[in-house]
Design a protein around this nucleic acid. Structure first.
Lengths: 201, 201
DNA sequence: GTCTATAGCTGGATAGAC
DNA sequence: GTCTATCCAGCTATAGAC
């Protein structure tokens, strides 16, 4: 047995995230996080001022996984795709956290920095500020919606009362595959549709 | 002062929904609902077996506002739009409820019935089952993402550290207008992109 | 069908010893 | 920086009187 590693903000956040993933946001309590770390709950307050600050730290750690750097390397189409998919991967790995992510978004430097990169890229590509806002928001909506979709996790077995649903359900793929395929369709067809109104760069 | 109207499932659900809207999901407790109704908390248990059943009733009342009947009257393009917008209006009126809606979705007859109508319409239009699944899911993602977006509600004032964000923020419209405009762009361009691969009916 | 009373928990956070 | 002890508030749900 190794000696218990020291308590740090990062370790606390990582433990809290694991708890969110396993048992949901509502199951995260200071006591349970402490238990998981082999300490007592009050010890956590030496590193975090409150539970909200703790959850914000967790949100930040997830948002750091999002990569908007492609806008410095690629055209806006490819960059949007790369950004969208790295965003989706980050969210779908922790769908239970999404409610808190949406609330904390404006408080997180990481999140704002990423958004800034995306806007910059779209403006540089010749989109108007108004269009750039909407395009970035549209892609974000697609990503959040798809990640949230893996909450719902398919239809119950008794859905046989709904004939068409049942028919489709019979041939269903694994839920996560459906989410990915639907998001891919949404992004692909959205970008194809955008081409019709794209700035002639 | 009128005499207090009798307690019913519908009145309890409506009161709970108002509470969700005003103070958030986490603020909904049996005591507060009862307070709001001028009764004591235990009285609620004469009408609902548990808090979860109560929240499901609330979710059901919101899902009833979603209208997928357009698939019986219109082509798939227009029907998808009508369904999407009625879905969005229902959700955006109660964004705090969205986390529970995603969880409860599979338990709600109303939700499954709506989904069935959508699938039926898409199949009738000639889309393959696999494509129909993805199109319906894609539109649902767009709607949920957009409704969730109105949680976040814009950027904080200190976002001036992020130059492009700030530039765009200066010209920002009211947050809800941005949500609507972005969802409109997403749906319009998605449908335009779908046209390129649509079944020749 | 609503009430009072209450059981039985679980929560966030603080004080002060070590 | 972690501990023990504890405060105080909040919660869902039940029992039984009226």
């Amino acid at each position: 047995m190794a000696a218990a590693p020291p308590l740090t903000r990062a370790r606390i956040a990582a433990t809290a995230l694991a708890l969110v993933d396993r048992d949901g946001l509502g199951a995260v309590t200071m006591r349970r996080i402490a238990d998981e770390l082999g300490v007592q709950a009050p010890s956590l307050y030496n590193h975090m001022r409150s539970k909200e600050e703790l959850l914000d730290a967790v949100a930040e750690s997830v948002m750091e996984q999002v990569d908007a750097s492609a806008f410095r390397r690629l055209g806006w189409r490819e960059a949007l795709q790369e950004w969208a998919w790295s965003y989706y991967e980050a969210l779908v790995a922790h769908p239970n956290l999404i409610p808190h992510l949406t609330v904390a978004f404006g408080r997180l430097d990481v999140a704002l920095a990423r958004a800034d990169q995306v806007y910059a890229g779209l403006l540089r590509a010749g989109w108007t500020p108004s269009r750039a806002t909407r395009i970035a928001a549209a892609v974000r909506y697609a990503v959040y919606g798809a990640a949230l979709g893996s909450f719902a996790g398919g239809f119950p077995a008794e859905a046989a009362r709904f004939p068409h649903l049942h028919e489709i359900d019979r041939l269903r793929e694994a839920p996560e595959r459906v989410d990915r395929a639907a998001l891919k369709l949404l992004l692909d067809r959205f970008l194809a549709g955008l081409d019709e109104i794209a700035p002639t760069a």
